[in-house]
Amino acid sequence: MKALVLKDKVKPGGEIAKLYYEEVADPKAGPGEIVVCLRYAALNRRDVFVRQGLYPGIQVPAIPGSDGAGVIAELGEGVEGFKVGDEVIMNPSMGWGDNPKFPDVNFSVLGVPINGTYAEYIKMPAENVFPKPKHLSWEEAAALPLAGLTAFRAVVTKGQVQERDTVIIPGIGGGVATVALQIAAAHGAKVFVTSSSDEKIERAIALGAAGGVNYKNENWVKELKKLAGGADLAIDSIGGDTFKDLITLANPGSRIVSFGSTRGPVNNLLMPRIFFKQLHIMGTTMGSPSDFAQMLALFEEKQLKPVVDEVFPLEKAEEAHLLMEQGKQFGKIVLAIQE
C-alpha cells in the first residue's frame, strides 16, 4: 500500500521531519482486529508536533495520522458485529482502560508510535471501530473522531454544559474549537468566541455562535465581558495570558476546561482570582470509549456535521500541514486517500 512514513527523529526546535510517500507492507488483521481501507484522513496539530519532535516516546519509522474513515477490508478471528464492506470510522483513543476518569498508563493516541491514517489501509482493534454516521460524507466522517472526542469530553463530560449557559471558546477556527462550538450550541448554550480574524467570527456566528470579538483589539476582554456578561464555562486550548483573561471573564462558581496550551505556560497567575471566585479548573485530553460513543450519538441525533475547510491529496500532506501551521483554516483539513 501507499503511505506517508515518518522516518527521522528530530530534536525539539530543530528542523521539521520530512514525510516520505512510499510503498509499505499491507497490514494484516490479527485476532480481535479489523483492517480498514481508508477513504479519507484528517489533520490534527498533533501531527505537526510529532514532526517537530515535541511529543515524548516518538518511535520511527511510523505512519502519522489520528483521524480517518473507510470501508472494512478484513476481519480478524473473533471479531463480531461487523462485516467486510461496512463503512466505519475509528476512535483514535488507544488503550484508554477501564476508568472513565482518566486513561490507563499504556494509553496512546493513534498515529506514532501506532501506525496511523496517512495510508491506504490501517489495522485497528475492533473495540476502536464504529459505524460511520450515515448523514456524514466521507470527508466529514474523517474529520470528526479526534476533534469530536476531545470537544465532547471538554464541553459535556468535564464542562457539564447546561442549557442557557454562557460558553466562551477562544481561538475559534481550529478543529476542536469549532466542534466544541457546535456541541455547546446543540445543548442550548449561548456561545461566544474570539479570533484574530473577523471573517472567522462571522463564520462562527453562522455556525451557531451568539457573537465574538477580535482579540487583536486592545480592549477585547472588556468588549467580550460587555457582550457576553461573563462565562459559565470556558473551553481553552491556548493557555498563556489568554488563560488569565478567561479567569477575568469567569462568573463566580464557573468552570474552565483546558485541553491545550499553544501559547505556552501561564505566568504570574494570581491564585486569589481563582479561589475567591470559587472556580472549577479542569484538564482534559482525548476521551474514553464512552465519550466517543456518546459523541457519535449526539452528532446523529442533532444531525451535526464537522466543518471541512480544505481537501488535499494524501501525497500533499506536508502542504496541508503548512496551511494548518499558518492558522488560516476554519474547521478541519482533510486528506483524500482513495475515492
Rank of each mutant, 00 (worst) to 15 (best):
V24N: 02
V36R: 08
V193Y: 03
V156P: 00
S197Q: 04
E301P: 00
N219C: 01
W220F: 15
V112N: 08
L227A: 07
E310H: 11
K28E: 14
W138Y: 12
V48H: 02
L304D: 07
I333T: 08
N128A: 10
S108W: 04
A143I: 04
T285L: 13
H280T: 14
V24P: 03
S197N: 06
P125H: 11
H187C: 06
G65V: 11
N128I: 04
E163W: 07
D47T: 08
K200T: 10
D291S: 06
E310T: 14
L233A: 13
D232G: 04
I201N: 09
M324G: 01
D241R: 14
F312M: 00
D8F: 05
M286I: 10
G208D: 09
N115G: 00
D104T: 05
A41Q: 05
A143Y: 02
L298F: 07
R273D: 03
E140C: 07
P125Y: 11
G85L: 03
K332S: 05
K332H: 05
V71S: 09
S196M: 00
P272S: 11
K216F: 00
P145H: 11
T194L: 04
G188C: 10
V36H: 12
I235L: 12
M124A: 13
A126Y: 05
G283V: 14
E120S: 10
Y21N: 00
M282N: 04
V334M: 14
E202I: 03
V129E: 05
M286Q: 09
V266T: 15
A228E: 01
L43F: 06
L296Y: 10
S237E: 00
E202Y: 01
S290C: 03
S195Y: 01
L233P: 01
E87H: 06
E339G: 00
N268V: 07
K11R: 15
W96Y: 01
D104R: 05
A228N: 03
P113T: 14
L146H: 06
K305M: 00
Y20M: 01
I281G: 03
A336V: 04
T248E: 13
M124N: 06
K132G: 10
I256A: 07
K158Y: 08
I122W: 03
R263V: 05
E74H: 10
S137N: 11
A186E: 12
Y21L: 04
D165Y: 13
V109S: 04
Q160R: 15
Y20W: 12
T117F: 03
S108V: 05
E223W: 05
A151Q: 03
A320F: 12
Q59Y: 13
P131F: 15
P252T: 13
N219K: 15
V308Y: 10
A228I: 10
S261W: 14
Y40P: 00
T284A: 12
L19H: 03
E163S: 13
M295V: 09
F107R: 01
A297T: 06
A297E: 12
T150W: 07
E80M: 07
G111Q: 12
K216M: 12
V176R: 02
H321L: 04
P103A: 07
I337N: 04
G70K: 13
V221W: 05
M1P: 02
M286C: 09
M295Q: 08
A297W: 04
I274A: 06
E223Y: 02
S137F: 05
A17H: 12
P113I: 09
E218H: 09
V79S: 10
G111C: 11
M94W: 08
